[in-house]
C-alpha cells in the first residue's frame, strides 16, 4: 500500500468512512424515492396533457413545463441555500442527512420528471390507441399501458437518476449535508488529508458503478422485447 494511504488503516477512520457511506446511501435512496413520487406525478401529467396526449390540456401542460424548466435551471448549491427556510420548516433543522433530503428532492424531482416523461413517450402511440379502442380509461392507460410498457426504460432512468442524486448529495457536504461529501470536504479539502479524499472518491465511484449495474441488469431482465 502506498504511504499516503497508511492513515486509512486506523479503525476510527474506517468507521468514519463506513458511516459516511451509509449516510450517503441513505440520502441518495431516500431522495431518489421521494423524487420519483413527485417526478412520476409531474411526468404523467406532462405526458397525458400534451397536445397529442390522451387528455390534451395545453394550459396545465404549459404551466408544469415552465415550472420544471425553472427548477432545473437552478444550480444545486444555490437551490440548497435558497430552500433553507422550507427545510427548517419541514425537518426542524438545516444540517444532517434528513435536512439534505429536502433540497435533494426539490432539485431532483423535475429532472426525474423529464426522465420519466421521455420514457413514457417512448411507448408506441399505436399501443395507446389500441388500448383506447378497447375502451380503456385514462387511468387504465396510465397504469396498465404506459408505465408497464415503459418499465425497462424507467428502470434504466432510475439508475441515471440515483447516480445523479448521489452526486448532488456529495455537493451538499459543503453546506451542512452529511455523508461522503462532508468527509471529503472536511478532511480532504480543509485539512489536506489526501488519503481520506482518495477513499471517498473510490467509494463514490464504487457506489455509482453498483447502482448503474443493478439498473442495467434489472432493466434487461424485465424487458420482454429481449427474450
Amino acid at each position: 500500500m502506498p504511504d499516503f494511504l497508511a492513515g486509512l488503516c486506523d479503525p476510527d477512520t474506517l468507521q468514519m468512512l463506513a458511516e459516511g457511506t451509509l449516510d450517503t446511501l441513505y440520502m441518495t435512496l431516500a431522495s431518489t424515492f421521494f423524487a420519483y413520487v413527485f417526478g412520476m406525478i409531474m411526468a404523467v401529467v406532462l405526458v397525458v396533457c400534451r397536445a397529442d396526449g390522451i387528455r390534451p390540456c395545453p394550459g396545465l401542460y404549459k404551466v408544469l413545463d415552465v415550472v420544471v424548466n425553472l427548477t432545473r435551471s437552478f444550480p444545486f448549491l444555490i437551490l440548497m441555500i435558497a430552500v433553507i427556510p422550507l427545510t427548517r420548516f419541514l425537518v426542524g433543522t438545516t444540517i444532517g442527512n434528513n435536512a439534505t433530503v429536502v433540497p435533494l428532492v426539490i432539485a431532483a424531482a423535475p429532472f426525474v420528471a423529464r426522465l420519466i416523461e421521455s420514457s413514457l413517450l417512448e411507448v408506441d402511440h399505436g399501443i395507446v390507441e389500441a388500448a383506447q379502442s378497447m375502451g380503456a380509461s385514462t387511468f387504465q392507460i396510465i397504469f396498465r399501458v404506459l408505465i408497464p410498457e415503459a418499465l425497462p426504460s424507467l428502470i434504466n432512468g432510475s439508475a441515471i437518476a440515483s447516480t445523479t442524486i448521489l452526486g448532488y448529495s456529495a455537493m451538499s457536504g459543503a453546506v451542512g449535508g452529511g455523508g461522503l461529501g462532508k468527509l471529503a470536504i472536511m478532511y480532504g479539502y480543509n485539512r489536506y488529508q489526501t488519503d481520506i479524499m482518495f477513499a471517498t472518491c473510490v467509494l463514490l465511484i464504487l457506489i455509482v458503478q453498483i447502482l448503474q449495474e443493478i439498473g442495467n441488469r434489472l432493466s434487461r431482465r424485465c424487458d420482454k422485447r429481449l427474450v
Binding site: 408506441d124 399505436g126 399501443i127 390507441e129 389500441a130 383506447q132 379502442s133 378497447m134 375502451g135 380503456a136 380509461s137 399501458v145 408497464p148 410498457e149 418499465l151 425497462p152 424485465c222 424487458d223 420482454k224 422485447r225
Partner: peptide, 25 residues
C-alpha cells in the same frame, strides 16, 4: 366518456402494426 368506453368494448379493432403490448405474453 364512460359510455363511449363501454361502446368501444363492443367494437374490436386491429391494426396494420398489430399494436400488441410488448411487455405482455
Amino acid at each position: 366518456s364512460a359510455e363511449l368506453n363501454r361502446a368501444r368494448r363492443s367494437m374490436g379493432m386491429i391494426f396494420q402494426q398489430f399494436n400488441l403490448l410488448m411487455q405482455r405474453s
